[in-house]
Amino acid sequence: MSAVRAGVVARVVRYELRDVAKSRWLLGYALFFLLATDALLRFGGGGTRALLSITNVVLLLVPLVSTVFGTMYLYDAREFTELLLAQPVRRDELYAGLYLGLALPLALGFLGGLLVPFAVHGVGDPSQWRLLAVLALTGVALTCVFVALAFAIALRSEDRARGLGAAVGVWLLFSLLYDGLVLLGVMLLGDYPLERPLIAAMLANPIDLARVLLIMQFDVSALMGYTGAVFEKFFGNGGIAVAIAALAAWVAAPVLLGARAFRKRDF
């Protein structure tokens, strides 16, 4: 495996950024966050409550948009990918370029939409800065995770409709079905000690991981009863580091899976 030349990656990223930056999708995405955050700050009551509402929007929307946009972009760029691969460019370089060229503008669109209203309205309580920072970082991490998942899936299916379907299926699983399944498990196995399995279940789902990381910042974990106490204890003992490492692994694993698929793929 020959080394990736950063210069080549940077060139691909630069031009892809120009392309994606002019996309109406991205503009709409950033605008939505801008309007939603602004509205919640204006009418959502106190700063913390607004932040809690925004957290829910972020946890639902960032993965969905990253998944759909990532899948569609890769299918649309198929002929372009071919053209670039016919140049003296290595596959890993092009893959890195394509990935960063999409994850970066999506993350920036999200950050812009989220942070501009706060810059305008200000943050009421200094303790909320920390919350906002965690929210921003978590959103960026989720963008990276789901663009990578979208790429890994889209590269394994020639058929556009099937690829998109599978990607949305993964989003659906992680954002909606997963919690239901975990709850079902808890109900069925309620007589057993479930702390460890529950923490494992949380680490195995990037959205849950992000949610728990965020909720821990809100001082409402006490309201979450028994499991909340379990998490509190877990995060108190260096669990935060574990959670962040798990989120990083959630970015790395699909990126590497996608790179493998990209290397083997016939264009």
Binding site: E16, D19, A21, A77, E79, E82, L83
Partner: peptide, 9 residues
């Protein structure tokens, strides 16, 4: 290539 499709923007 046979098909000329480029990034739209």
């Amino acid at each position: 290539p046979q098909i000329a499709r480029f990034p739209e923007n």
